[in-house]
Amino acid sequence: MTTQATAGRLESVSSYIDPYPGRKGRERIVETCGRCGGTGVYNAPSRVTFYTSAVNDITTGCFSCAGTGVRSFLVSSARQTARRRAKEADRSRGIAAQIAYAREAFMARHGAVYESLAEQHAQLRHNDPLRSRIGLLLESAEESHTGKTDINDWRAAAEAVLEEIAIREEAKRPVPTGRIEIEAEVLSTKWVENDHGGSLKMLLAGAGWKVWGTVPRSLDFNDRPPRGHRIALTATIEVSADDEAFGFFSRPTKARIVAVPHIAEED
């Protein structure tokens, strides 16, 4: 049975229950107001007052019962309200079932890939571009029940990201440490706030390793985006505690630009 058919079947089974079985529709029901407990008075702070028959005075009357302390309605009206609410509840139940069955079908076919993406998303650093791509794929998977996600395209994109991660992991090398000179490519820059106002940080990529640190003031990108520039500098590098291919550089000196990224000429 298809997801839509299952949801439609659930929605077609009405949850309506007659609130007054055996009573005629033209009969009138009088009951104590549930909002004010029959007092006819609105107990919360309010500047709105009117004549309240329940206390025979002008006060902050209850709007639900108009200050009478009771609610009066026809049985037919109560049944109409009950049918409307039951219909809304049945529709919501049908939609929830449709989503549940769609997700179940998705996970049955692509669950292993989805779990691999989720695991990588949790392990990658927040400033890693691949983490952002995986995040978008996970969001698309969660919305797959809407029909707006092409599952075949999703699967291809997910496998491409996982393959890219595998290739990158295989190419990883231990980050060089100590006070050394390095040459690397600028992957990204980010302004980071601190107690002293903040500083511009950058992520550098070397031969199988990456380092993170403060952009030296002596570096001049000539008003061009830093990404893609190849730079050289001398700095003290310490390896990360959880990844031997990632490190942090400090006290950078002798920074210079080795190569600038190529910019395609506009037509």
Rank of each mutant, 00 (worst) to 15 (best):
R133W: 05
Y42P: 11
E88A: 14
S14W: 02
V192E: 11
L203T: 14
L162A: 08
V55N: 02
E181K: 12
Q120S: 14
A118Q: 15
T52Q: 07
R79K: 13
V215L: 07
N43F: 03
G34K: 08
A259G: 01
A102H: 11
V192D: 08
V30S: 10
M107F: 12
G111V: 00
A44R: 12
N56P: 05
P19V: 03
A232C: 04
G247M: 07
K201I: 07
V258E: 01
P252E: 00
T49E: 15
A86Q: 08
R79Y: 08
L162N: 10
A89M: 11
Q4R: 15
S116P: 13
E181P: 09
N152L: 11
D223A: 04
A205C: 12
F50H: 05
T49N: 11
R125G: 15
A160S: 15
L187M: 09
S199E: 06
V30L: 06
M107T: 11
I257N: 02
I99A: 09
R91F: 12
D243Y: 10
R84C: 15
T68C: 03
N222W: 03
R71K: 08
K201D: 09
I182R: 02
E139A: 08
A184K: 10
A160F: 11
A96C: 03
P174R: 08
R173T: 13
D153I: 02
I151F: 10
E193I: 08
R91W: 08
G147M: 01
E11D: 14
A235R: 00
A264S: 15
A105M: 11
